[in-house]
């Protein structure tokens, strides 16, 4: 137990060292604004990827409407800062909470559905959220809403760290195991005393909360938000992080979020090419490696396995 606590704090300290180094490079202008902006964008995308990973990868609930919660977080936080004059930090939290509440409202009825039906229902909910913003003049309708720039490397890094810590800790506990058991075999999970509805909704709410936070960061990084930013293609972008990384692998989701964000930054001028590559990659992965890059493994498993094999000299079954 002591060892586990230590590795946890070690990881946190390393994360802050990494943060400090980057911050130093930014403030000394060694990293130029283009790259620091890419870093912020990477943080936002990792938050989105990891929050969806909890829903799809861990709990096995196929949601393809994550952009709806992103939109809620973006609009609510923008209203907080632009219309109500609240501080940015408070706006972020408010965006997260409203998105989480929406997750609760959406989750309770739709999580009775399974597989493709759930997918379609979440897609429908995301579209409804988008159409609602499209029709509200208070937030600018189709023209969108002006937002000040407030997202910095510091805020996005802190939000990212919080997201990962919460989701990793949740996953590595009895609650996370309950969620995984639902993914693996819902009927058996139910028969083992797991309240499957409760955990599906909980995973959905936590996932939506962080998507909302990401929305706040997103809104305050781009000067303007419009309903068209939060359509099905945005949900698809987030989905591809999780699927490419490997359903069930948090490190996989993080790696593919970083990779694809960098790739799409370079392809910014060629949006069609980007979409062709994205969709082709997705289809190829599904046809030839449906478990994704990492399967359900984590990066840390590779270290663990190596150590274990060395000590035990191969694996043995107990008969």
């Amino acid at each position: 137990m002591l060892k586990k606590v230590n590795t946890f704090w070690l990881a946190i300290i390393l994360a802050f060292v990494f943060y400090g180094v980057i911050q130093l490079l930014i403030s000394t202008a060694i990293i130029n604004p283009f790259y620091s902006n890419t870093l912020i964008f990477i943080c936002i995308n990792i938050i989105l990827a990891v929050s969806l990973h909890l829903v799809i990868g861990i709990t096995g609930q196929f949601s393809i409407g994550h952009a709806g919660f992103l939109a809620l977080g973006a609009y609510i936080s923008a209203i907080m800062t632009m219309e109500l004059g609240m501080p940015f930090s408070l706006a972020l939290v408010a965006g997260g909470i409203v998105a989480a509440l929406a997750g609760l409202v959406v989750g309770i009825p739709s999580l009775r559905l399974r597989g493709d039906y759930l997918a379609i229902a979440t897609l429908g909910f995301a579209e409804i959220i988008r159409i609602i913003f499209l029709n509200i003049d208070y937030v600018g309708g189709a023209a969108g809403m002006q937002v000040t720039h407030a997202t910095t490397w510091t805020t996005s890094f802190l939000c990212l760290l919080l997201t990962i810590v919460v989701i990793v800790n949740f996953t590595n506990s009895r609650h996370g195991r309950a969620c995984i058991s639902i993914r693996e075999n819902e009927i058996a999970a139910d028969a083992m005393g797991i309240n499957t509805t409760y955990y599906k909704v909980t995973a959905f709410v936590i996932g939506s909360f962080f998507a909302g936070i990401a929305g706040g960061l997103y809104a305050h990084n781009f000067y303007i938000i419009q309903p068209v930013n939060f359509g099905f293609l945005k949900s698809f972008d987030i989905l591809i992080f999780v699927v490419l990384g490997g359903l069930g692998s948090l490190s996989g989701a993080v790696i593919s979020a970083i990779l694809l964000t960098v790739v799409s930054t370079f392809l910014q001028e060629l949006p069609e090419t980007r979409m062709i590559i994205y969709s082709l990659v997705l289809v190829m992965v599904m046809l030839y490696r449906p478990q994704g890059l990492m399967g359900t493994r984590e990066i840390t498993d590779y270290f663990g396995k190596w150590k274990w094999k060395r000590i035990k000299g191969g694996n043995q079954y107990g008969g």
Partner: peptide, 29 residues
């Protein structure tokens, strides 16, 4: 109907789930 991708130990731990009391908050933090 096992939880195939989970370890043998975790399969059993899942079933102990409702005997434990620690909350989601205590796990997250």
């Amino acid at each position: 109907r096992l939880f195939n991708e989970q370890s043998v130990l975790d399969n059993v731990k899942v079933a102990y789930h409702s005997l434990a009391r620690h909350s989601i908050i205590s796990s997250i933090f």
